[in-house]
Simulated assay, not measured.
Amino acid sequence: MPSLRQFTPEAAWQAPEGEPIIRIENVSKRFGELYAVDDISLDIHSGEFFSLLGPSGCGKTTLLRMLAGFEMPTEGKIYIDGQDITQVPPYERPVNMMFQSYALFPHMSVADNIAFGLKQEGMPKAQRQERVREMLSLVQIDKLAARKPHQLSGGQRQRVALARALAKHPKILLLDEPLGALDKKLREQTQFELVNIQERLGITFIIVTHDQEEAMTMSSRIALLRDGRVEQVDPPHRLYEYPNSRYAADFIGSINLIDGYVISQEDNRVQIRSEDAGCDLEVIHSQPLIAGTQVTLAVRPEKVRLQTEGNAIANRLTGVIKEIAYLGDVSIYHVELPTGKRIQFTQSNIQALAEQPLSWEDEVVLGWPANSCGVLTQ
């Protein structure tokens, strides 16, 4: 999966002496008997573009609202810059929030919408006008200052909402599904702009999204949530390449999950017997695994390749193509093994071909190296 970030500022959260700008300590939120957030602890550092990712109902929006002060934790503490803000009202927190609906005032011009929060704070008019000009230029809507929200496209309204949220120069910007209403092309374009703005300003961005590609594209780190708990926190490449559970592996991107059990391990080479695959498989795994341990081998479709007779490779499977999805740049093939298990693999469409080289019911031999897959034990 692509990433728009030119660098990954890992040092901030890897350095033991680095104090986080946000510390969430054992925070839970209960509605009646239901835990929307269940004992979450997270450290988020200054300058991060941090994503809260997960399906509907996993607790990500509730956690964001607790950071904003719109919800109070049932248990636990929230610190910003070392200060306990758990019970501090929203207007006294150094954060601002950009809502999914954008929540623009329909009777106000674009400029007045952006200036609203500054006016409420009592900023002098000349300074306020200068800040509005600065924000209009930042999000590239200088020529729209006099328009009303109903005269704007969805993408333009999104920019106004972003400019208004940034106008008060908050330490932290919270974004609740900010790109959900945009079409695919505009969403991808806006992802570039958000990353560039965040890196230029150095403000900590925390975004809630259910879109894995959006999170993978923009984030310095991602917290994957499940049923109110944190499943895994990692930079995008680690979350994709080294998921720590079946849930994480299956949620991020497409993946082949093949069940089996360990039959032996020599150094870092693990032999797995799999009824799914109908054969033994091999994987490189640095941690010791006891013979008989039930495991799941995880291999991404792009790691699986067509094999020739003379090509020696650790993992080889023969099957029949049952489904083909042509996506323009790549084609996705679903291959059924003799066991009934289906394996996905992809091929890049480098040349414009009148006919596809592979077709339904073709028998193919697939393979992947032992170091191109992972082992999951949970």
Rank of each mutant, 00 (worst) to 15 (best):
R30W: 10
V37F: 08
M72P: 00
D250Y: 10
G278A: 06
T308W: 04
Q351L: 14
M72G: 08
G122Y: 05
E25G: 01
K125I: 13
G292H: 12
G278V: 07
L67G: 04
D176T: 13
L289I: 13
E275V: 14
L104C: 11
L42E: 01
A167E: 00
R65P: 02
I44D: 01
D276I: 13
P106N: 07
I197Y: 03
Q356E: 06
Q140I: 01
R131L: 01
Q151M: 13
R273Q: 15
G18T: 15
P16N: 08
E188L: 11
G180R: 05
L225T: 09
L186D: 00
R5V: 12
I78P: 03
I313S: 04
V95P: 01
L306R: 02
T293F: 04
E134D: 08
A11W: 12
G292F: 14
N371S: 14
Q158R: 10
A248D: 02
R93Y: 04
Q356G: 04
Y240K: 11
V132Q: 03
A126W: 04
G32W: 13
S3C: 07
E75H: 15
P235N: 15
I40K: 02
V375R: 02
I141V: 06
T339L: 00
R5I: 12
F116I: 08
Q378W: 09
S359H: 08
K77D: 15
S46I: 07
E17A: 14
N96S: 15
R147M: 01
R229V: 14
K148V: 00
V27M: 08
E25W: 00
K168G: 00
T296F: 06
V27L: 06
P170N: 07
P124Y: 08
P236L: 08
A312T: 15
P301K: 05
A12P: 01
Q307C: 15
A314F: 03
G18F: 05
G155Y: 06
V139Y: 01
E282Q: 12
V230L: 12
G202L: 10
S331G: 05
